[in-house]
Amino acid sequence: MDSNSAEQKDMASKAHADVHADEKAAANGKTAKLRIFRGDSGGGELVDYELPLVEGMVVLDAVLYVQAHQAGDLAVRWNCKAAHCGSCSAEINGKPRLLCKTRIEEFDGGEIQVHPLKAFPVIKDLVSDISWNYQVSKGIKPFTSDEQAPFTMYEEDVERLYEPKKCIECFMCQDVCHVLRTHHKHAEFAGPRFFVRNQWLEMHPMDNQDRLHDLKEDNGLGLCNITKCCTEVCPVDIHITDNSIIPLKERVADEYYDPAKWLMRKIRGNRGSRNGAAARNGSRNGN
């Protein structure tokens, strides 16, 4: 975490300095070649751009250079330029990446193609309409506790909650997930980002809600076939599949696919009681 943020800080400051070093680059004589998608929901094409290469330049620098000097109408969404806001996600050479965290030098002078996120409708150029994600988010039961915050919690009970909290909502995991991207299951599948959110809520010791039914029926957890593309693209290194999706799948299995557990519940008779799962999982205020 520390080295990561240090690296990001370093990257940001260096790139910032280099943007103002155009003259140096011009003297250098090196250029970067980019192919950027230009178009909208009706279609579009890749357009070639060439610009002076500055040492340490990231793809976002290049895109902004093109916007400032060659194509004033180029649309790109960006904000912090430090890999913290998750705004500049796009597809670079077919892989979802943050524009601000991808250095031009990484491609060794090879082709750099920049596309918008394809799992969502394109608005213009590199900007996709990601509002579907906010609708899904609204459908998730919010954090609810019987107690008033601030809570007294022990470190050992919340150490698993730091990782899902790192999420910057760049939605690159949503973009790369074949359930959304290829199979278009937007109506019945929440996507990796919202399994991460659900895992945080489900494992929170102070939360008293049971989301397993929603996860199985409304959020389509069973549609995920754990092929881990989401984990591969996460820019903040959340192990989405191993630490969010699979633990949730195991909890859903506890509730719906485990015959021995089903029998035990029948014998004990606590099936269907309010917050049953939360109580069994040892939530502080689950009973």
Binding site: E156, D157, H204, D242, P247, E250, N281, G282, S283, G286
Partner: peptide, 18 residues
Amino acid sequence: CHSFRHLVGGNKDCYSCI
């Protein structure tokens, strides 16, 4: 195994409560 991980502790929300 992920199932073993769930069995030993992944199924609990609050270790200090049990």
